[in-house]
Design a protein around this nucleic acid. Structure first.
Lengths: 199, 199
DNA sequence: GTAGTCTTATGATTGAGGTCATAAGTCGGC
DNA sequence: GCCGACTTATGACCTCAATCATAAGACTAC
């Protein structure tokens, strides 16, 4: 996350989107650095059959969509507001100027890209596996690890619908439903009022 | 890629590894920035059943293993020499000092992390798909798109064995062998002396 | 040149996830 | 309070990648 006073001095501006709005689309070339002040944004793709794949869900304080700013490529996915969101956006040229003038900001961006690569590296071997329950566990472990919930067993509720879980893991809704039931039998998680709680 | 004269001034040093040597292992904490002068390096994991997953293959001019230098995490995968390799290595503290003093180098590192994230973003939706031939096509398209081959149809040879393709896509060797044969029938690629050529 | 390993190849079998159909529970908007 | 859309759920069937077995071609080291 880059301090807002630095961003504003370059100058960045505020943008508002309503739930469901598209912030940018796959294939577009990037014009802005985006950082979330409020709300949630998902990055997703649709394959030929119309099946959704969610790359990532970003929350307040996180930036998204930087990679194409550095290389000469269009966005590989869409960005869609999951709630009403408030963004701070800085134009591409100003963004690069900022990195030249503020080495510590450039390192902070490196840090945030490094963090994302690190988790992709952790997830990729499991996601590529054929075993559906392993995919589910990997996602759940990631979710839990990135929450602040440390209140003891079965207090962390997965804030995702079965469909979203399916889209994040590349599985089908039915497979997710059957999978979480199996994982409950194994004692890996708990289902209360259809919500999933992790140990 | 960072210019060698800058690296040497900090000061970096040269390292040599023989084919098959391990450069670092999963779980180690990082001490160096590595850049390849000569040869190839793969980053890989093994799952519980011993199945290999190749995160990436790096060639001359590329750097690897930077993410853990920025965040306080151990390497999420191993780095293994695929051939005899000559590396240039710069200690962690000197590396960070260099980024502060040379903003353009910091941006270059951002660029290389961005390139890798982009690759992961392109691959993830297809890798998660159940359709094996789609996984293969995605890998091949990426390979082709990032080579310098623009000499017309079927001149780009995929520089990977069937096993490496399997480990990069999370499939089994047999599935890859059958898949590329199907893709040849479709006219998507050509097999000559067991080598795969892309249109 | 020869042994040993890696790579490519092919057939038979099987099991797990996808697909399709159907339905009940839940939630939001009017 | 009702309607419609979404979410969760369950059964039956099917498809296709994994698995296991076997073998031939290619390459590497000695």
């Amino acid at each position: 996350m880059i301090p807002e006073d630095i961003l504003l001095s370059f100058p960045a501006r505020f943008l508002n989107y309503k739930k469901g709005d598209t912030i940018f689309s796959k294939g577009n070339y990037p014009s802005y650095y985006y950082q979330i002040r409020l709300g949630e944004v998902k990055m997703n793709n649709y394959n030929e059959e119309g099946k959704e794949f969610i790359q990532n869900i970003f929350t307040a304080g996180q930036s998204f969509g930087e990679p194409p700013l550095f290389i000469d490529e269009p966005y590989p996915a869409n960005a869609v507001a999951l709630s009403n969101v408030e963004l701070i956006a800085l134009g591409k040229d100003d963004f690069l100027k900022m990195l030249y003038q503020h080495p510590e900001v450039s390192i902070e961006i490196n840090r945030s890209l490094a963090r994302r690569l690190f988790y992709k590296a952790v997830m990729a071997p499991e996601i590529s596996s054929q075993d559906s329950n392993k995919r589910l566990k990997t996602l759940f472990n990631y979710q839990k690890g990135h929450s602040n919930a440390t209140d003891g067993p079965f207090t962390y509720m997965v804030p995702l619908t079965r469909q979203q879980i399916a889209d994040l893991t590349g599985l089908r809704v039915e497979t997710v439903i059957r999978g979480v039931k199996e994982l409950e039998k194994e004692g890996y998680l708990l289902i209360r009022q259809r919500k999933i709680f992790l140990k």
